[in-house]
Write a protein that binds this DNA or RNA. Structure first.
Lengths: 195, 195
DNA sequence: ACCGTAGCACTAACGGTTAGCTTTTTAGAA
DNA sequence: TTCTAAAAAGCTAACCGTTAGTGCTACGGT
């Protein structure tokens, strides 16, 4: 039971990685809907049940890489400099995230996601979970109860900024435009304290 | 092809209604996940294929009643009085919608939705579609291109207000609180014109 | 009365997902 | 080293939502 220093973990991680890589490759080659779970499992040389012990669903295979999205957002809140205001910190992080996912190399993946209703639904649901986590982080940072309406609202708005900016003609400009609105909303919510 | 005044339509509508009623009853009796499509079809005395010719998915059975949500929102924009400002009109409509879905009789249904991941995902996706429609209505009303970022943003924020307020301890107060933020955001987006 | 078609039924399947159970591999104790 | 318990992986067979293919029946317009 002590520190599992080990081979097990490495092998497990390797299996997981192999599955994810294989899946993404096949999806991009043949299209998401045209590739079945059984195809991915066969190509990765694992059993279907093994695949599902690593990933909760077919869609989760696609969003493997996006795993640190949630963490980066909460870190932008909890790990910012002592007197740095909240909204600009969020704006800065969303800028980086949007730049990352609109980079050249990532284009085919996001096109695939846009074209598949199942993947879109999955992402939408995932982002809302991220919003809840972010809301809790914001509330904690401000010493408020975790379900404070204003915090949940700002968290949702921030996620909205990410998804809307991604689809805009000029993503970086859209982030700035939306965050001007969020800034105003935040000040309207905390009229007494310019945090 | 002229006005199909008729029995066919009535029968079709009756079948659809019977399916929806049966489904909702079974879901509330035994739980959404515990009832299969085949159960619903059998109890409503129709074939499975017939059920799917009326409803696109199992989840759609639950949101039958909620069909006019989208329409009411767009009407709140396009059908408002000549010089009535946009945001208060939206706020008023969201107030009504939240009151409607937090009414006593509707409680078990919304509890069921909250408890089922599939239903939550479906609703989230549906609301985002509504947001797109609303954004287009707002843009059209203001004579702007349908993908104007500010309009899409306000539409998303409005939908956020609906879903967040529903979950708040005091839904009506939450609507007001969030709409204060939306109002500020809107003014920040249109600094030159107080529409 | 006749014809075209909309609505519905039935069977059979597909694809994602899970349950049940067996086999292999590994970590740590004896 | 050898043994053991548990984690990881495997296989089979199914469940469930959903769709395709096909045919039948009843209705609406002529």
């Amino acid at each position: 039971m002590p520190v599992p220093t080990g081979r097990r973990e490495r092998k497990k991680a390797a299996t997981r990685q192999k599955i994810a890589d294989t899946a993404l490759r096949l999806f991009l080659e043949r299209g998401y809907d045209a590739v079945g779970i059984r195809d991915v499992a066969a190509e990765a040389d694992v059993a279907v049940t093994t695949l599902f012990s690593h990933f909760a669903s077919k869609e989760a295979l696609v969003f493997e890489q996006d795993a640190d999205f949630e963490h980066r957002l909460t870190r932008a809140v909890t790990g910012r400099a002592p007197h740095e205001p909240l909204i600009p910190a969020l704006r800065h992080e969303i800028h980086a995230l949007v730049r990352h996912c609109t980079a050249d190399g990532a284009a085919p993946i996001w096109r695939m996601i846009e074209e598949s209703p199942a993947l879109r639904k999955y992402e939408e649901s995932m982002r809302l979970r991220h919003a809840e986590t972010l809301a809790a982080a914001i509330a904690a940072d401000l010493g408020l109860p975790p379900t404070t309406t204003a915090c949940r609202t700002i968290a949702r708005f921030t996620i909205d900024a990410y998804t809307l900016a991604r689809e805009a003609a000029d993503p970086q400009a859209a982030v700035d435009e939306i965050f001007q609105m969020i800034e105003a909303a935040w000040q309207a919510a905390t009229p007494t304290r310019p945090t």
